[in-house]
Design a protein around this nucleic acid. Structure first.
Lengths: 227, 227
DNA sequence: GCCGTCATGGTACGCAGTACCGATGACCGA
DNA sequence: TCGGTCATCGGTACTGCGTACCATGACGGC
């Protein structure tokens, strides 16, 4: 059988699975029932998907690979601005995929909310993204043990912020895509700013908010830096 | 009563499981074999543990409850210093549990590294901690949508930093407990400092590193704050 | 037309997890 | 001491996921 028809059976299996999960629920739906509705045998299902829950997240690997490719495109010596751009654009890749999916993404969200096995599966998927970003940040946010921790924490922050915005979109139906994109940018900027290296290179200072007097802030900085 | 029956059935099952997992591997060990070595029936195993992988993380729920209790002890109006202390002490509870476990914790680490199902289970456990810290930080690190994101990102940072230090201890055998405790404090301070509100209340400034001249830093702060 | 090659589907099996039920034994009041 | 009650245990049977194996048929090269 050719490649195109193999893909179509895969798609038919996904559609059949989502339909049945919606009708009877995840646990009450057997793999055999999904295969039967898709018009294939049970064996074919397990050839297309490694497990029953794999059919719920069919293109996780593909999106992950696209994110990895976008991050790989950033040179090791890239300046901070290019690093930030790479992160933001990688995040946009994921968001764009969800926005394109539309209703199916929302159906999956409902499933992962209610079925513990699928929730675990989804969290494991997030972990894969986090590992990607951790490797990406390694060496870019400091050296030594502190740098390692910072890279991992930053990666967790990026993934968490993205996931937060994504969940917000999935939860509420009236939020537009442009609004969601803007919210993602804001959230990512909030996270990335925390770890932004200072232009001078000697010290790293982050100003989160500046409602008070500037002199107070300066005094505070001096107190923190001078022994 | 003999020595073996004085130990609770649950503990006997855990020991039998870890022994067999070490001898034959996780997948090659059946629940029936574990129950048989523990001297009980298969039904009793499933009465003590909800699933096969539950026996690998037997006191996850207990440690989680202790952490929750420690965080609950922090008043909603507690000052930032008390908030930070609560977080650090809660993290120390988890670390202390691992240090007390010793070899079993290392055996579990090896298992979670090699068996995919157990790795998924472990990250799901981390998610539970993260949810706890998220609720704890909610309302303490800002209001509105930005505050929500920040609470979740901060929770992810705390859990990630803790997990990083913990994994480092699990990986290398020569690291002492006091050294690990110090590393945990450092890592948590690094994370918490990012979100620490300024004492003055008007501005928030974070000094991550200060290798350069103090005047340079001050100039930088002024440049960032003054429009 | 004949023969590899590969996707398919069917069969059988192991094992996790659940439901049910009878047996055992501890505890307690009479 | 006896009998009743109740909880815990172990055994049995069942569903369903996931895997291994094998026969079949379609396709393409020779």
């Amino acid at each position: 059988m050719t490649e195109s028809t193999r893909e179509s059976t895969r798609d038919r299996l996904v559609s059949a699975a989502y339909d049945l999960f919606d009708e009877r629920g995840y646990d009450a739906t057997t793999v055999e029932a999904v295969a039967e509705r898709a018009g294939v045998g049970r064996t074919t299902f397990f050839r297309a998907f490694r497990s029953k829950d794999d059919v719920v997240l069919p293109d996780h690997a593909a999106v992950l690979a696209r994110v990895a490719a976008r991050l790989d495109a950033v040179a090791a010596t890239a300046p901070p601005a290019a690093v930030a751009t790479g992160v933001v654009e990688a995040a946009h890749l994921v968001l764009a995929h969800y926005l394109a999916e539309g209703d199916r993404a929302r159906a999956r969200y409902r499933l992962t909310r209610t079925v513990p096995a699928l929730r675990q599966r989804e969290v494991a998927g997030l972990q894969a993204y986090q590992r990607l970003f951790r490797e990406f940040f390694r060496g870019r946010v400091g050296d030594g043990e502190a740098g390692e921790v910072r890279a991992e924490v930053l990666a967790a922050g990026v993934v968490t912020a993205h996931n937060h915005v994504l969940r917000r979109w999935l939860r509420t139906e009236e939020v537009g895509s442009s609004e969601t994109t803007a919210a993602l940018d804001r959230a990512l900027a909030d996270v990335l700013r925390l770890f932004a290296p200072a232009p001078g290179g000697g010290a790293r200072v982050v100003v989160l908010e500046a409602d008070g007097d500037v002199d107070d802030v300066v005094r505070e900085v001096r107190a923190a830096l001078e022994p």
